[in-house]
Design a protein around this nucleic acid. Structure first.
Lengths: 148, 148
DNA sequence: ATAGTGTCTATAGTAACTATAGGGTCAAGT
DNA sequence: ACTTGACCCTATAGTTACTATAGACACTAT
């Protein structure tokens, strides 16, 4: 009847997992599509484009909340696009901060790792350094590394 | 009676929140300390050192699982410390990968943001680019940006 | 006695999914 | 008609490393 695509095909077409698509629908990022008689979701071009948009934003590191904002903004075509630009620039600033944090981590870790000259753990400078190095917080370091 | 410190003092001394300390205990990273008659936890130097170690590792971006491994390794003082070094180097590699990912993101986002010349959202190149830019996954980008 | 601070446990919430269980649908083959 | 297999459905729980909340108990100072 319909010439829409199934959730599985949409998943393939956008590089998204089926469960993720359903998840986006559940949290209101993707509108509920119509269903077949057998209760299968049927997607049309508009859904695909919207999912594209979401995935592209996610690939650029925007949070789902930011994506939500961007989606909202994208509908208000008559408004000033300063808000869009601000979102992008804020995000850019965050990425830069994160890169700086990670570079600091990298340096410290490299230094740490150079301590190891082989031998027994009892003499390991890495463990020792981790244990007794004077404590000073690396700001944002804990946050900078979430996941990988 | 005891000359140990309370959880609040330990928290202050290590820059950790009280709830986080209890959390570390719950997941078995910190041993259960003795209690006062009133059921308050009492910490001694050993606990403080261990928490130090944990926090330092966290600051360097190790996951709690990695911290657990490092803690285990640090007890086997007679073993070869290659395992310790490998952990550190693996982690270093991951940080480097993450930095590379974020730099790629930064570049793309900067390009994106340069599209915006002001004006109405209907004409906004950012939104348009997000919508119609040919889809190609930025490997690890989604993962690279978790949190900030 | 009471007020204020700190501590206790247990539970639920966060982000962005992922995994699992237990079932229904559909097209093709026998 | 029946069965196989691939796909789809819902609902729930798990992931990481905490954070927040509720309601009760302990301790100190007045």
């Amino acid at each position: 009847m319909s010439n829409g695509t199934s959730i599985g095909d949409l998943a393939k077409a956008t590089g998204t997992k089926v469960v993720t698509i359903r998840y986006y629908e559940k949290i209101g990022l993707l509108p509920e599509p119509p269903r077949t008689r057998g209760n299968y979701r049927i997607y049309e071009a508009l859904h695909r484009e919207r999912l594209h948009f979401i995935r592209r934003c996610r690939d650029l590191g925007f949070t789902l909340e930011q994506v939500r904002e961007l989606l909202d903004l994208s509908k208000r075509t008559d408004k000033d696009c300063a808000a869009v630009d601000r979102l992008a620039l804020d995000h850019l600033a965050e990425i830069e901060r994160k890169i700086a944090d990670l570079k600091r981590l990298e340096k410290e870790l490299r230094r740490l790792s150079e301590c190891c000259q082989g031998g027994r753990i009892g003499d390991c400078r890495i463990i020792e350094t981790l244990s007794h190095h004077e404590y000073r917080s690396l700001p944002n370091a804990r946050n900078a590394m979430k996941d990988g």
